[in-house]
Design a protein around this nucleic acid. Structure first.
Length: 426
RNA sequence: GGAGAGAUGGCCGAGCGGUCGAAGGCGGCGGUCUUGAAAACCGCAGUACCGGAAACGGUACCGGGGGUUCGAAUCCCUCUCUCUCCGCCA
Protein backbone atom coordinates (compact mmCIF):
# COMPACT_ATOMS: atom_id res chain seq x y z
CA UNK A 1 0.00 0.00 0.00
CA UNK A 2 1.05 3.56 -0.47
CA UNK A 3 1.79 5.72 2.57
CA UNK A 4 -1.61 6.50 4.13
CA UNK A 5 -0.17 9.71 5.59
CA UNK A 6 0.07 11.06 2.03
CA UNK A 7 -3.68 11.02 1.85
CA UNK A 8 -3.83 13.61 4.61
CA UNK A 9 -0.93 15.69 3.35
CA UNK A 10 -1.72 15.74 -0.37
CA UNK A 11 -5.07 14.14 -1.20
CA UNK A 12 -5.28 15.75 -4.62
CA UNK A 13 -1.83 14.50 -5.55
CA UNK A 14 -2.68 10.95 -4.52
CA UNK A 15 -5.88 11.04 -6.56
CA UNK A 16 -4.13 12.40 -9.64
CA UNK A 17 -1.45 9.75 -9.51
CA UNK A 18 -3.99 6.95 -9.08
CA UNK A 19 -6.11 8.32 -11.89
CA UNK A 20 -3.11 8.20 -14.20
CA UNK A 21 -3.36 4.42 -13.94
CA UNK A 22 -6.73 4.57 -15.56
CA UNK A 23 -8.84 3.99 -12.47
CA UNK A 24 -11.29 6.20 -10.63
CA UNK A 25 -10.39 6.07 -6.94
CA UNK A 26 -12.60 8.93 -5.80
CA UNK A 27 -15.12 6.92 -3.76
CA UNK A 28 -12.39 4.90 -2.04
CA UNK A 29 -10.35 7.99 -1.26
CA UNK A 30 -13.36 9.84 0.09
CA UNK A 31 -14.17 6.95 2.38
CA UNK A 32 -10.57 6.66 3.50
CA UNK A 33 -10.48 10.33 4.38
CA UNK A 34 -13.68 9.97 6.36
CA UNK A 35 -12.39 6.86 8.16
CA UNK A 36 -9.13 8.60 8.98
CA UNK A 37 -10.98 11.49 10.61
CA UNK A 38 -13.22 9.11 12.56
CA UNK A 39 -10.26 7.11 13.66
CA UNK A 40 -8.41 10.12 14.94
CA UNK A 41 -11.49 11.34 16.73
CA UNK A 42 -11.93 8.04 18.58
CA UNK A 43 -8.34 7.25 19.50
CA UNK A 44 -7.92 10.08 22.04
CA UNK A 45 -11.28 9.21 23.60
CA UNK A 46 -10.36 5.58 24.09
CA UNK A 47 -6.88 6.38 25.30
CA UNK A 48 -8.12 8.89 27.86
CA UNK A 49 -10.58 6.35 29.24
CA UNK A 50 -7.85 3.75 29.46
CA UNK A 51 -5.61 6.14 31.23
CA UNK A 52 -8.31 6.82 33.80
CA UNK A 53 -8.90 3.13 34.15
CA UNK A 54 -5.22 2.48 34.76
CA UNK A 55 -5.09 5.19 37.39
CA UNK A 56 -8.20 3.85 39.11
CA UNK A 57 -6.81 0.31 39.22
CA UNK A 58 -3.67 1.66 40.81
CA UNK A 59 -5.87 3.29 43.46
CA UNK A 60 -7.36 -0.11 44.25
CA UNK A 61 -3.92 -1.55 44.78
CA UNK A 62 -2.95 1.33 47.04
CA UNK A 63 -6.15 1.09 49.07
CA UNK A 64 -5.67 -2.61 49.56
CA UNK A 65 -2.07 -2.16 50.61
CA UNK A 66 -3.12 0.44 53.18
CA UNK A 67 -5.78 -1.86 54.52
CA UNK A 68 -8.74 0.19 53.24
CA UNK A 69 -11.77 -1.38 51.59
CA UNK A 70 -11.41 -0.96 47.80
CA UNK A 71 -14.88 -2.14 46.82
CA UNK A 72 -16.40 1.37 46.52
CA UNK A 73 -13.94 2.02 43.68
CA UNK A 74 -15.14 -0.93 41.64
CA UNK A 75 -18.42 0.36 40.29
CA UNK A 76 -17.04 3.40 38.45
CA UNK A 77 -14.31 1.28 36.95
CA UNK A 78 -16.74 -1.29 35.76
CA UNK A 79 -18.81 1.32 33.96
CA UNK A 80 -15.72 2.80 32.39
CA UNK A 81 -14.60 -0.64 31.22
CA UNK A 82 -17.91 -0.99 29.44
CA UNK A 83 -17.50 2.34 27.64
CA UNK A 84 -13.96 1.44 26.61
CA UNK A 85 -15.23 -1.80 25.16
CA UNK A 86 -17.89 -0.04 23.10
CA UNK A 87 -15.56 2.62 21.73
CA UNK A 88 -12.90 0.05 20.93
CA UNK A 89 -15.36 -2.07 18.99
CA UNK A 90 -16.19 0.99 16.92
CA UNK A 91 -12.53 1.79 16.41
CA UNK A 92 -11.71 -1.78 15.43
CA UNK A 93 -14.42 -1.76 12.78
CA UNK A 94 -13.09 1.49 11.34
CA UNK A 95 -9.55 0.24 11.34
CA UNK A 96 -10.51 -3.02 9.65
CA UNK A 97 -12.40 -1.20 6.91
CA UNK A 98 -9.53 1.24 6.43
CA UNK A 99 -6.99 -1.56 6.06
CA UNK A 100 -9.23 -3.45 3.66
CA UNK A 101 -9.59 -0.37 1.48
CA UNK A 102 -5.88 0.42 1.53
CA UNK A 103 -5.08 -3.14 0.44
CA UNK A 104 -7.17 -2.78 -2.71
CA UNK A 105 -5.60 0.43 -4.00
CA UNK A 106 -2.61 0.16 -6.35
CA UNK A 107 0.75 1.83 -5.92
CA UNK A 108 1.39 5.44 -6.89
CA UNK A 109 3.39 5.75 -10.12
CA UNK A 110 6.82 7.36 -9.87
CA UNK A 111 7.23 10.84 -11.37
CA UNK A 112 9.52 9.51 -14.09
CA UNK A 113 6.88 7.12 -15.46
CA UNK A 114 5.28 8.27 -18.71
CA UNK A 115 1.56 8.89 -18.42
CA UNK A 116 -0.44 6.71 -20.76
CA UNK A 117 -3.42 4.47 -21.13
CA UNK A 118 -2.10 1.22 -22.57
CA UNK A 119 0.95 -0.64 -23.83
CA UNK A 120 0.82 1.57 -26.91
CA UNK A 121 2.05 4.41 -24.69
CA UNK A 122 5.08 2.56 -23.33
CA UNK A 123 8.38 4.19 -24.20
CA UNK A 124 11.35 2.33 -25.65
CA UNK A 125 14.55 3.20 -23.82
CA UNK A 126 17.07 0.79 -25.36
CA UNK A 127 17.52 -1.64 -28.16
CA UNK A 128 20.28 -4.23 -28.48
CA UNK A 129 21.24 -6.57 -31.30
CA UNK A 130 19.99 -6.84 -34.83
CA UNK A 131 17.25 -9.30 -35.71
CA UNK A 132 18.61 -11.92 -38.05
CA UNK A 133 17.43 -11.99 -41.65
CA UNK A 134 16.38 -15.46 -42.74
CA UNK A 135 16.88 -16.90 -46.24
CA UNK A 136 14.00 -19.24 -45.49
CA UNK A 137 10.64 -18.82 -43.77
CA UNK A 138 11.32 -19.04 -40.02
CA UNK A 139 9.03 -21.35 -38.13
CA UNK A 140 7.32 -20.79 -34.80
CA UNK A 141 8.91 -22.59 -31.86
CA UNK A 142 6.14 -25.17 -31.47
CA UNK A 143 6.81 -26.42 -34.96
CA UNK A 144 10.56 -26.44 -34.47
CA UNK A 145 10.32 -28.18 -31.10
CA UNK A 146 7.70 -30.60 -32.34
CA UNK A 147 9.75 -31.63 -35.34
CA UNK A 148 12.83 -32.13 -33.13
CA UNK A 149 10.81 -34.21 -30.70
CA UNK A 150 11.75 -32.07 -27.71
CA UNK A 151 8.46 -30.26 -27.14
CA UNK A 152 5.10 -31.97 -26.76
CA UNK A 153 1.75 -30.36 -26.04
CA UNK A 154 -0.54 -33.27 -26.84
CA UNK A 155 0.76 -35.59 -24.18
CA UNK A 156 0.79 -32.73 -21.65
CA UNK A 157 -2.85 -32.00 -22.47
CA UNK A 158 -3.80 -35.61 -21.83
CA UNK A 159 -2.50 -35.56 -18.28
CA UNK A 160 -2.95 -31.90 -17.36
CA UNK A 161 -5.03 -30.07 -19.96
CA UNK A 162 -4.43 -26.95 -22.00
CA UNK A 163 -1.52 -24.63 -21.29
CA UNK A 164 0.81 -27.37 -20.15
CA UNK A 165 3.79 -28.80 -21.98
CA UNK A 166 6.35 -31.55 -21.86
CA UNK A 167 9.98 -30.84 -22.62
CA UNK A 168 12.12 -33.86 -23.29
CA UNK A 169 15.59 -34.82 -24.41
CA UNK A 170 17.60 -31.82 -25.50
CA UNK A 171 14.61 -29.58 -24.77
CA UNK A 172 14.55 -30.54 -21.10
CA UNK A 173 18.31 -30.27 -21.00
CA UNK A 174 18.12 -26.83 -22.56
CA UNK A 175 15.71 -25.60 -19.91
CA UNK A 176 17.97 -26.92 -17.18
CA UNK A 177 21.01 -25.39 -18.89
CA UNK A 178 19.29 -22.01 -19.00
CA UNK A 179 18.40 -22.18 -15.32
CA UNK A 180 21.95 -23.06 -14.33
CA UNK A 181 23.46 -20.50 -16.66
CA UNK A 182 21.26 -17.69 -15.35
CA UNK A 183 21.81 -18.59 -11.71
CA UNK A 184 25.56 -18.83 -12.20
CA UNK A 185 25.76 -15.41 -13.85
CA UNK A 186 23.62 -13.71 -11.22
CA UNK A 187 25.34 -15.32 -8.25
CA UNK A 188 28.96 -15.14 -9.36
CA UNK A 189 28.96 -11.94 -11.40
CA UNK A 190 26.02 -9.86 -10.18
CA UNK A 191 26.23 -10.55 -6.46
CA UNK A 192 22.86 -12.19 -5.81
CA UNK A 193 22.45 -14.85 -3.15
CA UNK A 194 20.85 -18.04 -4.45
CA UNK A 195 17.74 -19.20 -2.63
CA UNK A 196 15.51 -22.21 -2.91
CA UNK A 197 12.24 -21.06 -1.37
CA UNK A 198 8.90 -22.76 -0.76
CA UNK A 199 6.74 -23.10 -3.86
CA UNK A 200 3.59 -22.91 -1.75
CA UNK A 201 2.89 -19.78 0.29
CA UNK A 202 0.14 -18.50 2.55
CA UNK A 203 -2.32 -15.62 2.38
CA UNK A 204 -0.12 -13.29 4.39
CA UNK A 205 2.80 -13.71 2.01
CA UNK A 206 0.65 -13.08 -1.05
CA UNK A 207 -0.92 -10.06 0.62
CA UNK A 208 2.57 -8.74 1.25
CA UNK A 209 3.47 -8.72 -2.41
CA UNK A 210 0.06 -7.41 -3.50
CA UNK A 211 -1.33 -10.54 -5.18
CA UNK A 212 -4.02 -10.71 -2.53
CA UNK A 213 -6.70 -9.75 -1.73
CA UNK A 214 -7.48 -8.46 -5.24
CA UNK A 215 -6.10 -11.08 -7.61
CA UNK A 216 -7.00 -14.42 -6.12
CA UNK A 217 -8.51 -15.50 -9.45
CA UNK A 218 -5.01 -15.48 -10.96
CA UNK A 219 -3.72 -18.02 -8.46
CA UNK A 220 -3.94 -21.77 -7.95
CA UNK A 221 -5.15 -22.50 -4.46
CA UNK A 222 -4.50 -25.77 -2.68
CA UNK A 223 -7.70 -27.70 -1.99
CA UNK A 224 -8.60 -28.85 1.49
CA UNK A 225 -7.99 -27.29 4.86
CA UNK A 226 -4.88 -25.42 3.82
CA UNK A 227 -4.07 -21.75 3.59
CA UNK A 228 -1.69 -22.28 0.69
CA UNK A 229 -1.32 -21.22 -2.92
CA UNK A 230 1.15 -22.22 -5.62
CA UNK A 231 3.51 -19.32 -6.16
CA UNK A 232 2.83 -17.27 -9.32
CA UNK A 233 6.45 -16.09 -9.20
CA UNK A 234 9.48 -16.41 -6.92
CA UNK A 235 9.03 -12.72 -6.22
CA UNK A 236 6.52 -13.78 -3.56
CA UNK A 237 8.74 -16.01 -1.41
CA UNK A 238 11.86 -13.92 -2.01
CA UNK A 239 10.24 -10.64 -1.04
CA UNK A 240 8.66 -12.31 1.99
CA UNK A 241 12.02 -13.63 3.14
CA UNK A 242 12.27 -10.62 5.46
CA UNK A 243 8.63 -10.02 6.28
CA UNK A 244 8.11 -8.57 9.75
CA UNK A 245 11.81 -7.89 10.19
CA UNK A 246 13.74 -4.76 10.99
CA UNK A 247 16.91 -4.95 8.95
CA UNK A 248 20.26 -3.30 9.55
CA UNK A 249 20.48 -0.44 7.04
CA UNK A 250 24.22 -1.01 6.70
CA UNK A 251 23.55 -4.42 5.17
CA UNK A 252 21.35 -3.13 2.36
CA UNK A 253 20.85 -3.79 -0.45
CA UNK A 254 20.01 -7.47 -0.05
CA UNK A 255 20.01 -9.24 -3.40
CA UNK A 256 18.38 -12.62 -3.94
CA UNK A 257 17.91 -14.88 -6.90
CA UNK A 258 15.94 -18.08 -7.18
CA UNK A 259 14.90 -20.57 -9.76
CA UNK A 260 11.34 -21.73 -9.24
CA UNK A 261 8.48 -23.03 -11.27
CA UNK A 262 5.64 -20.49 -11.42
CA UNK A 263 1.92 -21.28 -11.53
CA UNK A 264 -0.75 -19.01 -12.91
CA UNK A 265 -4.39 -19.68 -13.65
CA UNK A 266 -4.37 -17.26 -16.60
CA UNK A 267 -8.03 -16.63 -15.90
CA UNK A 268 -9.37 -14.12 -18.37
CA UNK A 269 -6.72 -14.73 -21.02
CA UNK A 270 -8.51 -17.59 -22.79
CA UNK A 271 -8.05 -16.28 -26.30
CA UNK A 272 -4.46 -15.14 -25.94
CA UNK A 273 -1.34 -17.08 -26.89
CA UNK A 274 -3.11 -20.41 -27.03
CA UNK A 275 -0.35 -21.96 -29.08
CA UNK A 276 3.10 -22.75 -27.87
CA UNK A 277 5.02 -22.08 -24.71
CA UNK A 278 4.33 -18.37 -24.39
CA UNK A 279 1.52 -18.56 -21.86
CA UNK A 280 1.47 -21.66 -19.67
CA UNK A 281 -0.11 -22.53 -16.33
CA UNK A 282 3.33 -23.69 -15.21
CA UNK A 283 6.62 -22.19 -16.29
CA UNK A 284 10.17 -21.88 -15.04
CA UNK A 285 11.69 -18.58 -14.08
CA UNK A 286 14.86 -17.28 -12.51
CA UNK A 287 13.86 -14.30 -10.43
CA UNK A 288 15.82 -11.37 -9.03
CA UNK A 289 14.73 -9.54 -5.89
CA UNK A 290 16.37 -6.64 -4.10
CA UNK A 291 15.57 -5.11 -0.75
CA UNK A 292 17.06 -1.66 -0.40
CA UNK A 293 16.65 1.90 0.83
CA UNK A 294 14.55 4.73 -0.54
CA UNK A 295 17.70 6.58 -1.53
CA UNK A 296 19.13 3.70 -3.56
CA UNK A 297 16.11 2.01 -5.01
CA UNK A 298 15.99 3.69 -8.41
CA UNK A 299 19.69 3.13 -9.02
CA UNK A 300 19.13 -0.47 -7.99
CA UNK A 301 16.28 -0.74 -10.48
CA UNK A 302 18.58 0.37 -13.31
CA UNK A 303 21.24 -2.18 -12.37
CA UNK A 304 18.65 -4.93 -11.96
CA UNK A 305 17.39 -4.32 -15.49
CA UNK A 306 20.97 -4.41 -16.74
CA UNK A 307 21.54 -7.71 -14.93
CA UNK A 308 18.58 -9.22 -16.77
CA UNK A 309 19.57 -7.72 -20.10
CA UNK A 310 23.06 -9.16 -19.81
CA UNK A 311 21.62 -12.67 -19.97
CA UNK A 312 20.10 -11.94 -23.36
CA UNK A 313 23.32 -10.34 -24.58
CA UNK A 314 25.36 -13.38 -23.60
CA UNK A 315 22.88 -15.56 -25.45
CA UNK A 316 23.02 -13.28 -28.49
CA UNK A 317 19.30 -12.63 -28.44
CA UNK A 318 18.17 -9.21 -29.73
CA UNK A 319 15.93 -7.26 -27.38
CA UNK A 320 14.52 -3.90 -26.58
CA UNK A 321 13.70 -2.39 -23.22
CA UNK A 322 10.62 -0.29 -22.63
CA UNK A 323 9.44 1.68 -19.63
CA UNK A 324 5.79 0.92 -18.96
CA UNK A 325 3.39 3.84 -18.92
CA UNK A 326 1.14 4.54 -15.95
CA UNK A 327 -1.81 2.68 -17.47
CA UNK A 328 0.13 -0.51 -18.23
CA UNK A 329 1.88 -1.07 -14.91
CA UNK A 330 1.08 -3.82 -12.46
CA UNK A 331 -0.73 -3.22 -9.17
CA UNK A 332 2.34 -3.07 -6.90
CA UNK A 333 4.77 -1.24 -9.19
CA UNK A 334 5.85 2.38 -8.96
CA UNK A 335 7.96 1.95 -12.08
CA UNK A 336 8.46 -0.98 -14.42
CA UNK A 337 10.81 -1.80 -17.27
CA UNK A 338 9.87 -4.64 -19.58
CA UNK A 339 12.55 -6.36 -21.57
CA UNK A 340 11.25 -7.73 -24.86
CA UNK A 341 13.10 -10.36 -26.86
CA UNK A 342 12.93 -10.64 -30.63
CA UNK A 343 10.78 -13.50 -31.88
CA UNK A 344 11.09 -14.15 -35.63
CA UNK A 345 7.82 -16.09 -35.82
CA UNK A 346 5.80 -13.07 -34.81
CA UNK A 347 8.23 -10.62 -36.38
CA UNK A 348 8.03 -8.69 -33.11
CA UNK A 349 9.49 -8.15 -29.67
CA UNK A 350 7.87 -10.13 -26.87
CA UNK A 351 8.07 -9.65 -23.10
CA UNK A 352 10.67 -11.88 -21.48
CA UNK A 353 11.32 -9.92 -18.29
CA UNK A 354 9.51 -7.38 -16.18
CA UNK A 355 11.54 -5.40 -13.66
CA UNK A 356 9.82 -3.24 -11.09
CA UNK A 357 10.51 -0.97 -8.18
CA UNK A 358 7.56 -1.23 -5.81
CA UNK A 359 9.16 1.35 -3.50
CA UNK A 360 7.67 0.79 -0.02
CA UNK A 361 4.38 -0.62 -1.34
CA UNK A 362 5.18 -4.24 -0.59
CA UNK A 363 7.39 -3.47 2.40
CA UNK A 364 4.52 -1.67 4.09
CA UNK A 365 2.24 -4.66 3.51
CA UNK A 366 4.87 -7.18 4.56
CA UNK A 367 6.34 -5.02 7.36
CA UNK A 368 9.89 -5.02 6.03
CA UNK A 369 11.77 -2.18 7.70
CA UNK A 370 15.34 -1.12 8.31
CA UNK A 371 17.31 0.99 10.72
CA UNK A 372 18.97 3.72 8.63
CA UNK A 373 22.76 3.47 8.62
CA UNK A 374 23.05 7.06 9.81
CA UNK A 375 20.53 6.63 12.62
CA UNK A 376 17.02 7.97 12.88
CA UNK A 377 13.60 6.39 12.68
CA UNK A 378 13.06 2.96 11.18
CA UNK A 379 12.07 3.15 7.54
CA UNK A 380 10.11 0.87 5.28
CA UNK A 381 12.48 -0.78 2.82
CA UNK A 382 12.06 -0.51 -0.92
CA UNK A 383 11.61 -3.81 -2.71
CA UNK A 384 12.38 -4.56 -6.34
CA UNK A 385 11.84 -7.59 -8.47
CA UNK A 386 12.54 -8.70 -11.99
CA UNK A 387 12.71 -11.80 -14.13
CA UNK A 388 16.20 -12.76 -14.90
CA UNK A 389 14.78 -14.37 -17.08
CA UNK A 390 11.62 -16.29 -17.88
CA UNK A 391 13.12 -19.65 -18.85
CA UNK A 392 10.36 -20.86 -21.17
CA UNK A 393 10.34 -17.70 -23.20
CA UNK A 394 14.13 -17.72 -23.39
CA UNK A 395 13.92 -21.25 -24.71
CA UNK A 396 11.41 -20.08 -27.30
CA UNK A 397 13.73 -17.27 -28.34
CA UNK A 398 16.64 -19.65 -28.76
CA UNK A 399 14.64 -22.12 -30.84
CA UNK A 400 13.30 -19.41 -33.11
CA UNK A 401 16.35 -17.16 -33.43
CA UNK A 402 18.85 -20.00 -33.84
CA UNK A 403 16.77 -22.25 -36.12
CA UNK A 404 18.40 -23.46 -39.32
CA UNK A 405 16.94 -24.23 -42.72
CA UNK A 406 17.26 -27.98 -42.05
CA UNK A 407 15.17 -27.72 -38.87
CA UNK A 408 18.07 -27.98 -36.47
CA UNK A 409 18.85 -25.39 -33.81
CA UNK A 410 22.30 -24.03 -32.99
CA UNK A 411 23.08 -23.77 -29.26
CA UNK A 412 24.42 -20.32 -28.27
CA UNK A 413 28.04 -20.62 -27.21
CA UNK A 414 27.46 -19.41 -23.68
CA UNK A 415 25.15 -22.38 -23.09
CA UNK A 416 27.30 -25.11 -24.55
CA UNK A 417 29.20 -25.84 -21.31
CA UNK A 418 25.81 -26.42 -19.73
CA UNK A 419 24.77 -28.75 -22.58
CA UNK A 420 27.70 -31.10 -22.29
CA UNK A 421 29.37 -29.38 -25.21
CA UNK A 422 26.43 -29.88 -27.55
CA UNK A 423 26.54 -27.37 -30.41
CA UNK A 424 23.35 -28.14 -32.22
CA UNK A 425 20.01 -29.79 -31.55
CA UNK A 426 19.13 -31.89 -34.56
C1' G B 1 -1.98 -40.18 12.42
C1' G B 2 -0.94 -40.99 18.20
C1' A B 3 1.45 -39.03 22.97
C1' G B 4 3.81 -35.06 25.40
C1' A B 5 6.50 -30.11 26.09
C1' G B 6 6.92 -25.15 24.89
C1' A B 7 6.32 -19.78 22.60
C1' U B 8 8.66 -13.34 27.09
C1' G B 9 12.72 -7.43 24.34
C1' G B 10 18.61 -8.19 18.93
C1' C B 11 19.90 -13.11 21.60
C1' C B 12 19.65 -16.14 26.24
C1' G B 13 16.57 -16.20 30.36
C1' A B 14 13.52 -14.77 35.25
C1' G B 15 8.77 -13.38 36.33
C1' C B 16 3.27 -14.66 43.98
C1' G B 17 -3.29 -11.32 39.36
C1' G B 18 -1.83 -4.99 41.36
C1' U B 19 4.05 1.00 40.40
C1' C B 20 6.08 -5.16 35.08
C1' G B 21 7.56 -2.43 29.30
C1' A B 22 8.97 -6.39 32.19
C1' A B 23 14.86 -8.84 36.83
C1' G B 24 19.53 -10.78 35.33
C1' G B 25 23.14 -12.10 31.56
C1' C B 26 25.13 -11.61 26.53
C1' G B 27 25.42 -8.52 22.43
C1' G B 28 24.98 -3.01 20.80
C1' C B 29 25.87 2.39 21.61
C1' G B 30 28.11 6.53 24.60
C1' G B 31 31.58 7.71 28.44
C1' U B 32 35.63 7.15 32.47
C1' C B 33 40.42 4.90 32.73
C1' U B 34 44.66 3.77 28.90
C1' U B 35 49.99 5.89 24.44
C1' G B 36 46.28 2.58 21.93
C1' A B 37 43.36 -1.70 22.79
C1' A B 38 41.45 -5.17 26.25
C1' A B 39 39.56 -5.55 31.13
C1' A B 40 36.92 -2.94 34.83
C1' C B 41 33.39 0.76 36.08
C1' C B 42 29.30 4.40 34.88
C1' G B 43 25.40 5.57 31.67
C1' C B 44 21.99 4.93 27.22
C1' A B 45 19.30 1.82 24.70
C1' G B 46 12.29 -1.98 21.82
C1' U B 47 8.00 -1.36 18.29
C1' A B 48 3.54 0.97 16.67
C1' C B 49 -0.18 4.51 17.05
C1' C B 50 -2.48 9.40 18.98
C1' G B 51 -1.35 14.56 20.42
C1' G B 52 2.79 18.14 19.81
C1' A B 53 6.95 22.55 15.62
C1' A B 54 9.92 20.21 19.19
C1' A B 55 11.09 18.80 24.03
C1' C B 56 7.84 15.59 25.58
C1' G B 57 3.14 13.36 27.11
C1' G B 58 -0.36 9.36 26.45
C1' U B 59 -2.04 4.41 24.80
C1' A B 60 -1.06 -0.46 23.24
C1' C B 61 2.20 -4.61 22.55
C1' C B 62 5.28 -10.72 26.84
C1' G B 63 3.09 -16.09 19.56
C1' G B 64 -2.49 -14.62 17.34
C1' G B 65 -7.67 -14.10 18.84
C1' G B 66 -11.42 -14.27 22.67
C1' G B 67 -12.89 -14.54 27.94
C1' U B 68 -12.72 -13.92 33.55
C1' U B 69 -11.46 -9.52 36.74
C1' C B 70 -11.80 -2.96 39.33
C1' G B 71 -6.93 -4.72 37.32
C1' A B 72 -3.85 -10.17 33.16
C1' A B 73 2.97 -11.58 30.85
C1' U B 74 0.64 -14.18 35.06
C1' C B 75 -6.09 -17.54 35.38
C1' C B 76 -9.60 -19.88 31.42
C1' C B 77 -10.90 -21.05 26.13
C1' U B 78 -9.25 -21.27 21.17
C1' C B 79 -6.00 -20.96 16.96
C1' U B 80 -1.08 -20.92 14.92
C1' C B 81 3.82 -22.26 15.20
C1' U B 82 8.16 -24.84 17.36
C1' C B 83 10.40 -29.04 19.86
C1' U B 84 10.59 -34.42 21.74
C1' C B 85 8.94 -39.62 21.28
C1' C B 86 6.06 -43.41 18.30
C1' G B 87 4.02 -44.63 13.35
C1' C B 88 4.34 -43.60 8.03
C1' C B 89 7.30 -41.57 4.14
C1' A B 90 11.17 -38.85 -0.41
Amino acid sequence: MFDPALLREDPAGVETRLRSRGIDPSTELAELTRLDAERRRLIPIVETLKRESNEASAQVAIARREGRDPTPLFQANKERAQRIKEHEAELDAIEARRQALLLTLPNLPHQSVPVGASSADNVEVRRWGTPRTFDFAPKPHWEIGGALGILDFERAARMSGARFSVLSGAGARLARALINFMLDVHTTEHGYREVEPPFLVNTAALTGTGNLPKFEQDLFRIAGDWDLYLIPTAEVPLTNLHREEILDGRQLPLKYTAYTPCFRSEAGSYGADVRGLIRQHQFDKVELVKITTAEQSYDELESLVRNAESILERLGLPYRTVVLCTGDMGFAAAKTYDIEVWLPSGNSYREISSCSNTEAFQARRAQIRYKPAGGGRNQFAHTLNGSGLAVGRTLIAILENYQQADGSVIIPEALRPYMGGLERIA
